[in-house]
C-alpha cells in the first residue's frame, strides 16, 4: 500500500478542484447533496441582513440626493459659495453655515486635542494602575451624557458664565484683536466652541490612549535604558503614535462637525460670517435641527436636505481619512 505517485503541478490541481464533487456544486446539489439545508438557509439569511446594511448606506445617499434635487438643479455649486441664506426670498447659499461648521469644529479641536493628548499620556504613561480605571471610567461617563443635556447645561450655566465673566474679560484684555469684539451675548461661536471641545474630549482622548498603549513596551524600555527621562521616552512613543493620534483627531473632527443639539442650543443660530467669536453663528447640523419643521416650501426643504447631503459626504470623507490614518499606524507598528 505504498504510495509514491509524483505530485501533479499546482496549476493542474486547481483544475481538479473545480471538478470535485465537494465544491462548488450546483444549487440542487448544494441543498440536497453535500450541503446541509439548514446551514444553506442560515448563511443566506445572515447574508441578507449584511446586504441590508450595505443597501441602507447606499439608500441614505440616494434618498438625500433625490430629496435635494430641485435645490441642486437651481443652485448648483453656488449653494456652497453663496453667502446669503434667506428663506423668505428663497435664496439658499450655505457659505456662512459651512464657515460656522468648520470654524467651530476647528477651534474645538484646537482646545480639545492638546488636552486629550495630555489625558492619554497621563493614562498610559504616568498614572499608577489603581488610578487609571476610575479615570478612564470618568472620561467614558463624559461620553455617555446625552447631547441635549450638554445643551441644557450650556444654556443655563456655560452661556451666563461666558456672558458675565469670559467675554468682558477677553474684550478688556484682548479687545484689540478682531476675534474678541462686540457685545457679550453669551450665545455665539465661543459658547459653541467650548461645548464642542468638552464633547469631543472623551472620544479623542480614549482613542489616543488606546493608540499610545499599542506602542510596544519595548520602545519605552529601550529609551529608559539609554538614560532617557520619562518625558523623553514619552516623546518617542508620541512620535510612533503620530498618525494614530492624527486619526483620533479626525474622528473628533467628524464628531464635532455632526454634533447637533448642544451646538444649536448655544450658538445663536444666525447665518452670518463674522470674525468675532462673540457673535452668533450657525452650523449645518444646527440649521437642519432648527429649521426643518418650519420649512414650508418645497425649495426650502430641498435646500435643507441638500445641507444634510453635504454634511453626510463631509463626515464620510473625514471618517475615511481617520480610518486610513489609524490603519497606517497599526501597519507601521505591526500590531495588526
Amino acid at each position: 500500500m505504498i504510495n509514491s505517485e509524483i505530485q501533479p503541478d499546482i496549476e493542474n490541481s486547481r483544475v481538479e478542484i473545480n471538478n470535485t464533487a465537494v465544491r462548488p456544486p450546483g444549487f440542487f446539489k448544494k441543498v440536497f447533496g453535500t450541503y446541509n439545508l439548514g446551514d444553506f438557509i442560515f448563511e443566506r439569511l445572515t447574508l441578507l441582513f449584511a446586504v441590508l446594511v450595505f443597501l441602507l448606506v447606499i439608500l441614505m445617499g440616494y434618498e438625500m440626493y433625490v430629496g435635494s434635487k430641485i435645490s441642486i438643479d437651481k443652485f448648483g455649486w453656488s449653494f456652497l459659495t453663496n453667502s446669503v441664506w434667506d428663506p423668505v426670498q428663497e435664496i439658499y447659499g450655505a457659505l456662512p453655515i459651512i464657515y460656522g461648521t468648520i470654524v467651530s469644529s476647528f477651534l474645538a479641536l484646537v482646545i480639545s486635542v492638546p488636552l486629550s493628548i495630555g489625558i492619554a499620556i497621563f493614562l498610559s504613561e504616568v498614572s499608577p494602575g489603581w488610578l487609571e480605571k476610575p479615570l478612564s471610567f470618568l472620561v467614558e461617563l463624559l461620553a455617555g451624557i446625552p447631547s441635549v443635556v450638554y445643551g441644557l447645561w450650556g444654556i443655563f450655566v456655560l452661556v451666563p458664565w461666558i456672558r458675565t465673566d469670559v467675554e468682558p474679560f477677553l474684550s478688556e484684555h484682548l479687545g484689540f484683536l478682531p476675534f474678541f469684539r462686540g457685545a457679550p451675548y453669551g450665545f455665539g461661536m465661543l459658547a459653541a466652541v467650548l461645548i464642542l471641545a468638552i464633547m469631543i474630549l472623551p472620544i479623542v482622548s480614549s482613542i489616543s490612549r488606546d493608540i499610545l498603549r499599542s506602542v510596544p513596551q519595548s520602545q519605552r524600555e529601550a529609551a529608559l535604558a539609554l538614560g532617557a527621562t520619562r518625558w523623553q521616552s514619552t516623546k518617542i512613543v508620541l512620535k510612533d503614535a503620530k498618525s494614530g493620534i492624527l486619526g483620533a483627531t479626525m474622528l473628533g473632527l467628524g464628531r464635532a462637525v455632526g454634533e447637533t443639539m448642544a451646538v444649536t442650543m448655544v450658538i445663536g443660530n444666525r447665518a452670518v460670517i463674522s470674525p468675532s467669536l462673540f457673535d452668533p453663528s450657525y452650523t449645518m447640523a444646527s440649521v437642519i435641527a432648527n429649521e426643518f419643521t418650519e420649512a414650508t416650501s418645497e425649495m426650502y426643504l430641498s435646500a435643507l436636505i441638500q445641507l444634510a447631503l453635504v454634511l453626510f459626504v463631509l463626515t464620510i470623507i473625514i471618517n475615511a481619512m481617520a480610518k486610513l490614518l489609524v490603519w497606517s499606524m497599526e501597519r507601521k507598528l505591526g500590531t495588526r
Partner: peptide, 12 residues
Amino acid sequence: LSGVPSIVVGVV
C-alpha cells in the same frame, strides 16, 4: 454609518 451624524439619519 457610525460616523454619520444623527441629524442626517433623521433627515433620511
